[in-house]
Nucleic acid binder design. Structure first.
Lengths: 215, 215
DNA sequence: ACCTGAACACCGTTCAAGT
DNA sequence: ACCTGAACACCGTTCAAGT
């Protein structure tokens, strides 16, 4: 009897619903997968629990609410987003400020367009409590500061047409966010742009913008 | 007894839950109000029914599903959106194409920013079936055609820097959609823009863009 | 300490029954 | 023809009880 028990335990470590191991992690992964499959609204605590093989109440040991789970999901997505942008900028420190701005925009767009549901979660703000997501807020402030700095550099070396840096900065962000959003909201089909052309046309739009602000 | 009945009927025409009069209209209005109060996700068939003073099943006599109700709401919102844009352009037929583009953008942004929830419904596409919303699709195609025409006019009279009209057109739409979306998603607070400054800064961003594409 | 399973208050949707 | 009210299958969340 004691032996049967000791044989059973290790072999059923994954199958047994009791003592999961890292349920918190499993729930975040399930939520990320659900979002990728059906959008942020397809994330449900009960379905995440089902996929993790636990009862409907179990997730509430790890997250106070569905919103708290979404906040953790957002933090995870934000980390991936940031990593992609940092990698893109790492090899471009020697470039001019407008070139760096373009690379920043392209990295932003690439990730947003290849991970539309995860991008939607971190940017829409309806899915979780932004103030509770420390990393998301910090990364965002960092990105804003970086674009401000690059624009100031460009202005200082006489590369810009407009003197209104704040409006230029916001226009630039609105452009990339708008492109990412048009992709999420399936606007490109109405604009006659096929899915495989979206990244290319987005890059061209970014070129039009940067060409426009440049002297 | 017959008299009591004939007295009762007219005086309770509104209070009596039976034979509503125009339940369809009342449900659309309730849904519009719910959206304005708590965003599109706050629209529920049951709550709309409650506000209209009918039972939970009653709405399904008029709408096949929640999505069908949202489609009707979107059609109504789209009509208001279109009316605002047409009014703004009506007095500008004599203006140059770039000036008309700016007025088009400003009218778009004004309505989007003053009716964020209704704008979100018609533009997000997750809230209803776009193919079932004939008016929304038609209006959108019209707006695309108009901006294309204005840009072509500007190009023909040598007013543009870039030759890539398609990319320019998409960049312009991404800019205004991005600004409207940043407002919905509360990004402007993170950018240090107070609510009462949003429309002004959006206009400045639009000026930067149009100044940028102009020769 | 961590999870189950029943429970409660919601929601969308259906359908027989009422007027 | 139009609406009620009960029902069903969901969902988020709580909580006593199990291990």
């Amino acid at each position: 009897m004691a032996m049967a028990k000791s044989v059973k335990k290790p072999s059923r470590a994954a199958a047994s619903p009791y003592h999961h191991g890292d349920l918190r992690r499993a729930l975040i992964d399930a939520a990320l997968a659900l979002a990728a499959e059906g959008g942020p609204s397809a994330v449900s605590v009960r379905e995440a629990a089902r996929r993790a093989g636990v009862s409907p109440g179990a997730p509430f040991r790890h997250f106070d609410s569905r919103e708290a789970l979404m906040t953790a999901v957002a933090e995870e997505a934000q980390q991936r987003f940031r990593a992609e942008i940092e990698a893109a900028l790492a090899g471009a420190v020697a470039e001019g400020p407008l070139r760096q701005l373009k690379l920043l925009g392209m990295a932003y767009l690439r990730w947003a367009m290849r991970n539309p549901a995860h991008f939607e979660i971190i940017s829409t703000g309806r899915w979780f409590d932004h103030d509770a997501a420390v990393e998301v807020s910090r990364d965002n402030a960092d990105a804003i500061a970086l674009s401000e700095q690059l624009l100031a550099q460009a202005a200082a070396s006489g590369q810009l047409r407009s003197v209104d840096l704040k409006a230029t900065q916001i226009a630039g962000r609105a452009l990339v966010y708008g492109l990412a959003r048009m992709n999420i909201d399936r606007h490109f089909l109405r604009w006659g742009v096929q899915p495989e052309q979206v990244e290319r046309i987005a890059e061209q739009a970014l070129d039009v913008f940067i060409g426009g602000i440049a002297r």
